[in-house]
Amino acid sequence: MTLKANEIKVGDTYSEEVCRNLSRTQIVQYAGASGDYNPVHTDQLYTSEIAGYPSVFAHGMLSMGMTGKMLTNYVGHGRLTSFGVRFTSQVFPGATLTATATVTGLREEGGENFVDLDVSTTDEDGTEVVKGTASARIDA
């Protein structure tokens, strides 16, 4: 599934719920797969008593990874040329996240077509947790 330049326009949006009621176990899965075992993500005792946070929280890269899933579903695999985000708020267990891409530009370069996107992921309260941009090569 790939996007076609003649089927989208600036202002179009695509949204996906990328996580519902985020479990501590999913954060453990991400720690294991990514190799980032920082205990502030999985170890409540350490996090509350030593690190001084109220609760363990998701890796920023887990939120970005879930946001990236929305992007590959929208633009297709092998199409992204860039993807960059800021982590604007911490994500805690129980979060439900919705990722949205908004078309900000369509361009042609060297005979190929590209789409530019604003990317935003928000939690169940509407707080933005990931904010950024992405670009992808699309079909004519």
Partner: peptide, 14 residues
């Protein structure tokens, strides 16, 4: 928390 700070931004160019 011993993790060398927090992750603020991440950017990839493919």
């Amino acid at each position: 928390g011993g993790g060398g700070g927090l992750h603020a931004e991440q950017h990839y160019v493919y």
